[in-house]
Computed example of a mutant assay.
Amino acid sequence: MKLLIYLISLIFVGTKQAHAWEDFYILQPGQLRFERGAAQKFSHFSQSDCRARIQQITCIVNPSQNPQEPRTCQEDSPAAAPALEKIYDILPPKLQKVFCGLDVIYIENQLEALAYAGVIQADAQGHVQGSFMGIRRTLIEQNYDATSVFGWKEQKAFGIKAPPFVHLPEGPRVDVTLPVSLSALHYIVVHEFAHILDFANSANNFVCPEGETCNLSQGQPEEFQKLIPKEGSWGTLSWKGLMEPLPEQSFPLWNKLCFYGCTEQLGLQDIEAFYHQLNPTNFVSTYAAVSPYEDFAESLTFAVMAEHEDFQYRIQTPYASYSLDAKWRSIGPKKIWMQDFLNRDLKYPSPMK
């Protein structure tokens, strides 16, 4: 996990490579390459009509190991658009506008994660130049309940390898209740949009401490470890730096927290202790504790979901129960920061195409 956070940081020092971090990518201009199908005739339209863009940028694709690899949209790609148009119709207006800045929405025939997002590296003025998103195809085509989807993902943190969206009895139990109008896909889209808004608006902003020299040009991890959250940025609420929570938000098992590509990971024997340690922190969920970027994305998602009174998100272990929706409503500083953020005049990526 820490190595991946370090890699994504390298984009701020002008590296020419593309780096993946958890479920987020940052590419250089020209590295996002795809070819639309014949049925997707691209036309220009008003920036106020973000919904109309969805069918033109939805792109069903086969797996790729390299985000820079050119990809071809399958001919049936427009068939995936209606599910996303339904999501658009119920999103808050400030999230609807993210669709206007997307160059492509990949509908992945195969994907380990639920979804991912990415941006094109910022220009000299700091403006993010484009954005994209990928979603597991089965989530578009099948109406999986949120409990199954997020329960399956939660259990991955404990090394459980189950078929997609199957809850195994030996792992923690997740129970998610969404309003009738919402879905697991809705939650996922909001989470990925949060990543895009984070980078477009520098919500997470890490700087070299005053009086310190940070030589980032050589890409040495110890130099990146010196970076601290800029005053007023999101990271100040929970993070000492890019790779470490504040002492009061850290806990013994944090070093083993990992979902994807893990060299070390929590096990079933850690379940009770992990949630007992996580509960007093101001991380709203297990995934939020992974990094400052997932912390922001999960928190924005909970802020949007908690606008609905019937939203519930609970985790049950053999000996304890934890209400994450109640926890979010009680995390004053983060809740206020996020409300202020969503009330800003937000910046959005401009599509490259």
Rank of each mutant, 00 (worst) to 15 (best):
Y25D: 05
R137T: 00
S323M: 04
L227C: 03
K347L: 11
P221Q: 01
Q265A: 14
H276E: 14
K94L: 11
H308V: 02
G151W: 02
L242I: 05
N62E: 14
R137P: 00
H276N: 13
A306F: 07
I5D: 13
S46N: 10
A306D: 15
T263I: 12
Q225Y: 13
S233H: 03
H167I: 14
V104W: 05
Y287A: 09
E264H: 14
G14T: 00
K256D: 09
E170V: 15
Y287T: 11
K334V: 12
N255H: 13
V189A: 01
K97Q: 15
P247F: 03
Y319I: 12
E223Y: 12
P93C: 09
V174F: 06
P78R: 01
L257R: 02
T72D: 08
Y275L: 09
I160M: 11
W337Q: 03
A200Y: 09
W328H: 09
W254M: 05
A79F: 10
L3D: 12
A81Q: 09
N143T: 04
I8G: 13
L4A: 15
S64E: 07
I5E: 14
T236Y: 06
E69S: 08
V61M: 02
V166C: 07
I5Q: 15
W328D: 06
I57Y: 02
F42H: 11
Q47M: 13
A146P: 10
L111R: 03
P70F: 07
S48F: 12
I271R: 02
F45T: 11
L324G: 04
G134H: 00
L242D: 02
N109A: 11
E294F: 08
H191C: 07
I135L: 14
L182E: 15
A157E: 00
V304G: 02
Q110K: 11
F99H: 01
S9D: 12
R314L: 12
C59A: 08
H127F: 09
P78E: 03
Q249L: 05
D340Y: 07
Q74A: 14
Q339N: 15
A200R: 08
T317K: 07
R136N: 10
N215A: 12
K327L: 11
C59P: 07
Y116K: 05
Q96M: 02
L7H: 04
A18I: 02
L91E: 02
P292G: 06
Q225P: 04
P349H: 09
I135Q: 01
Q312L: 12
R136S: 08
D23N: 15
T263E: 14
L95Q: 11
L178G: 00
P333F: 09
Q56C: 00
E244K: 15
E75W: 03
D76L: 04
T213C: 00
K226Y: 08
A122M: 09
R33H: 07
H44D: 13
I57G: 02
C73Q: 04
E170K: 14
Q220G: 07
